[in-house]
Design a protein around this nucleic acid. Structure first.
Lengths: 139, 139
DNA sequence: TCAGACGTTCACATCAATGTGATGGCAACT
DNA sequence: AGTTGCCATCACATTGATGTGAACGTCTGA
């Protein structure tokens, strides 16, 4: 698949696909004429990348965790993905991802609570707010 | 509280506190000499902002959801926070936050699975991978 | 009163993720 | 052959969140 088709199928501008390659997130083969040649699986991989970017992860972090996510099974545990430094880094990233999840969850709930109150027409004033409920300390 | 103390107590550079103000996330009073004067509550508010920024939300989105999170209760449901456009926007933001949570959760689990396999020394090759398990379609 | 710490604004720099345009090669079709 | 469309690289612009420094006012303690 050439870059145009990949772009159409993923909705990601060709410019960005070249950028992801520059960042080490994609490694297409090259045809004789120099055109990039992507395998089918790249469609999923690009979606993966987009999802993570949209969550606020950087290309650097994504580069680190990609091997965990989309390698064909038989090269899952290549030695170079297994040294203690890398494992440490991945554990660390999992922790950071978890923090994001927690923060987002708290704030989602806070907004939902607000919306519920607004729609019920009942202002959540001091009187009907249970004591434990502080507005979602974020970090 | 002046900007220096707020900065020390939150760990956020004074430069950034001024920036958040420019973005409408903070609105300190001014003393006679022109110095910014923050109330105690700003410490929490700044932590809130930082948490959300670290989750990948923009100052624009944060500005939209802040009224839900940290207003003193008696001004919770001001009319200007209640028009249908705003409610719509908030519902939309909740949906987007949920998407992020889902994406991060899927990918966290995928990395964890990988780490578990790596540490047990068992490569998750085609044979021991249950059929439903695809590597976390992100978006 | 002077120094030094802290505050102000303004402006320019950086970094990552993108947009956009210039310039040119390759391919397919008329 | 010429046109059209896709591809290539290179380069500069932009946006959002930051860093950094200049130039200047304010407070405070020796």
């Amino acid at each position: 698949m050439k870059i145009g088709e990949l772009s159409r199928r993923t909705g990601v501008p060709a410019r960005m696909l070249r950028y992801y390659e520059e960042q080490g997130l994609l490694s297409p083969e090259r045809a004789d004429n120099g055109y990039r040649a992507y395998p089918e699986s790249t469609v999923d991989r690009v979606r993966q990348i987009r999802g993570l970017l949209d969550c606020g992860l950087t290309t650097e972090i994504i580069r680190a965790i990609l091997p965990c996510l989309d390698q064909p099974e038989h090269i899952y545990l290549l030695p170079e993905n297994l040294n203690p430094r890398t494992l440490e880094l991945l554990h660390h990233e999992v922790a950071r991802i978890q923090q994001r999840i927690d923060c987002l969850t708290r704030n989602r709930d806070a907004v939902l609570e607000y919306l519920a109150a607004a729609q019920s027409g009942v202002a959540p004033c001091a009187g009907n707010r249970r004591s434990g409920e502080r507005p979602a300390p974020s970090s």
